[in-house]
């Protein structure tokens, strides 16, 4: 009985096998890459209901972060300011700008402005702004140069490995607590050395056990 397939077809079977194998490995690799927090989270920049520019307010005008995010040093949450806070100035400045229409509306009707959340941790993670600020971790360490962003985007991955990097070696990210909102602060000597001094002075011991954050 003659063979149904010629001998040369063996070659194609082997090639097909290799192709399927490559496809599987490639698929897994692509999935792993695409779902990694640095890829999927970093760079998230949704459109906000009001085109508020952090660069104008915090950068050019030099307003302190605390002016609007006023509860950040005394609570776990860094609260987004009430519409009232915007209107403290905007009853005098740019009172008829069309870009501020929604702010004026919110102030008149009492309805909140639906800001879109950018930096979001999962519900199973406990994070407290207050303790980080009083330890001397600057806003810039987690949020980047917000004062240079016209539209805020997520700059850091906010994944667990990234949190742990700092919890294991916090020294480079520490500065005197009164300087945490100075986003453009440049240390005059080795930042790690300053960090070590702060750790010693404040007896800092960031948790690296699971229940530190997953409580």
């Amino acid at each position: 009985m003659p063979a149904i397939f010629p001998k040369s077809s063996d070659k194609y079977v082997k090639m097909a096998g290799a192709a399927i194998g490559l496809l599987v490995v490639g698929g897994v690799a692509l999935y792993a890459y695409a779902s990694y927090p640095t890829v999927i989270e970093t760079g998230y920049q949704p459109k906000q209901p009001v085109p508020y520019s952090h660069k104008t307010h915090a950068g050019n005008l030099g307003m302190d972060c605390y002016y609007c995010h006023s509860t950040v040093y005394k609570a776990a949450y860094a609260a987004v300011p009430a519409t009232e806070t915007c209107m403290n100035c905007h009853t005098k400045v740019k009172t008829d700008s069309p870009r501020l229409e929604k702010v004026r509306q919110s102030y008149a009707t009492g309805q909140p402005i639906p800001w879109v959340q950018i930096h979001k941790l999962p519900d199973y993670v406990y994070f407290n702004h207050q303790v980080h600020l009083s330890a001397g971790v600057s806003c810039v360490s987690c949020h980047g140069r917000i004062d240079q962003m016209v539209e805020v985007k997520e700059e850091k991955p906010l994944n667990m490995a990234w949190c742990l990097d700092c919890h294991r070696n916090p020294a480079p990210n520490l500065r005197p607590a009164e300087l945490v909102t100075k986003l453009d602060w440049v240390p005059d000597r080795d930042p790690a050395e300053i960090g070590r001094e702060i750790i010693a002075a404040k007896h800092l011991n960031p948790p690296t056990n699971c229940s530190g954050c997953h409580r």
Partner: peptide, 21 residues
């Protein structure tokens, strides 16, 4: 798609009130 979450601050704040506390 990442679902859009909103932060809804009050229109007029309450004196001394700290959200989340």
């Amino acid at each position: 798609r990442r679902p859009e979450h909103h932060i809804l601050p009050m229109s007029k704040g309450i004196e001394g009130y700290v959200p989340g506390k």
